[in-house]
Amino acid sequence: MGKCAMASEHEQLSETHIVGDDTQQWIVRADDCTALEQRHISHVGFGDAAVPYRIVRTRLSGAYIHGSLGGEGRMLLDGRWCTMRGGMMSFAPAHGLHAFHAVPEKRWQYCWLRYLPSAPRSVVGTIAPIMQHFDPEPMKHAILGLYSEVFHGEGDPASCVMWVDTIERYISRFADPWRRDARIVAVFDAVIPTLERHWTIEEMAEIAHVSTEHLRRISRKVFGRSPMQQLTQLRMQHATHLLATSDLPIEEIAERVGYSSPFAFSKTFKRMNGVSPSHFRLHSRA
């Protein structure tokens, strides 16, 4: 993975969408393609960016997949700013803080897919966020194939479905490897509905029928983090959803995601999202 650093706890980020004259993007939206709308996909695209290209989403409405094809950019995901270079992909869950931008004197080539809030991958409980080495070239070619069919071809519905199906199958290969391991599936099928519970790695290992050390190895292989770190990710993901979509007091949200101490919850939330829960709620409502 690229070089990463924790997001500043005091950094003030606001909703931003700057493309710039020196950035080109080829985009297909749900309004342009029925096949995208049917799959609950807002838009897909390919871009070649340069400064001042900058996107900040203080509350990402739908899950977002981003593939870095070449050059260099920076991305805020999982509470960290990371350098993105060719051969890297990321998956950002809905409702979280997400940002990326071009860097001076370098161009950045990338492709992406953004789901609608109604999409299954936007539902709270998705195993995310993810950032890892994974070749996005096939995804880029499928997106450009769809773009060509929609804007330069006949817009044939069957051909559009074929391209969208190819895009989604490729994303599944990137985002869902954990679902091929029944042990991990069993663990998180139990964990996700009960985030308020005081889970231990020993309890998780018992569900998976493996030792705690073996469960750590499996988890690091499929998620890039330990089982307890993955649990924290899921708790913070659910917390962002509750902060953005409900009026529940922060103390109650803390309890619902397994924190008896609001202070410990706020400290963890700020470490991973760069802002406090109250700051996140204020800006998501704005």
Rank of each mutant, 00 (worst) to 15 (best):
E149C: 08
P129D: 00
E11L: 15
E105R: 15
G62Q: 06
F188S: 07
P120W: 12
G47Y: 08
R39K: 04
R173A: 11
H10W: 15
V222S: 01
K267V: 15
G70R: 08
R85V: 13
I27D: 08
D21W: 12
D32L: 08
S68Q: 06
R80H: 09
P177C: 01
P277K: 03
Y115C: 10
P117R: 00
P277N: 14
A128I: 11
I143D: 04
A208N: 10
S278L: 04
R74F: 00
Q24N: 03
D78P: 02
C160K: 03
C82I: 05
D189F: 00
D48C: 11
L97N: 00
M139G: 10
I207Y: 03
A186T: 14
F174D: 14
H209E: 15
R85Q: 15
T83Q: 03
M162H: 12
W26P: 09
A208W: 10
A182T: 03
T58C: 11
P249Y: 00
G86D: 04
I218H: 14
Q38D: 13
M139W: 05
Q25I: 14
P177K: 11
S211N: 13
D247R: 00
M6A: 14
E206R: 14
Q25A: 15
S246L: 02
E105L: 12
Y53M: 06
T34Q: 12
Y64Q: 12
S90R: 02
E202Q: 11
G79D: 04
A63N: 10
A92W: 06
G274C: 15
F134Q: 15
L242Q: 06
E168Y: 05
R54P: 03
A182E: 08
F265S: 07
K106Y: 13
A239E: 06
M131F: 00
G71M: 01
V161G: 12
Q132R: 15
D21G: 13
F263P: 00
D165Q: 12
L113P: 05
L60A: 10
L60Y: 06
G153P: 00
L195E: 03
R85W: 02
R217Y: 09
T268K: 07
R173N: 09
R179L: 10
C111A: 07
S276R: 01
R59F: 04
E15S: 13
E137Y: 12
G96K: 02
R173M: 12
M75V: 06
I250L: 04
P157I: 14
A5L: 10
V187D: 07
M89T: 08
R217F: 12
V275S: 13
S260L: 02
D22I: 06
F223K: 07
F265P: 14
R271P: 09
M139C: 10
I130G: 01
H214V: 06
W178K: 08
S276H: 07
L116D: 06
A158F: 13
G87W: 01
L60E: 10
G258H: 05
L76H: 03
V56W: 02
A119C: 10
T268V: 09
Q24E: 08
Q24F: 04
F223R: 13
R220W: 15
V56N: 08
G274T: 11
S8I: 05
L97E: 01
E213H: 14
A286D: 07
T166Q: 14
F46Q: 13
R281Q: 06
A158Y: 05
G145V: 09
V124L: 04
V191L: 09
I55C: 06
G79L: 01
V123S: 11
L116S: 05
D21R: 13
L113K: 09
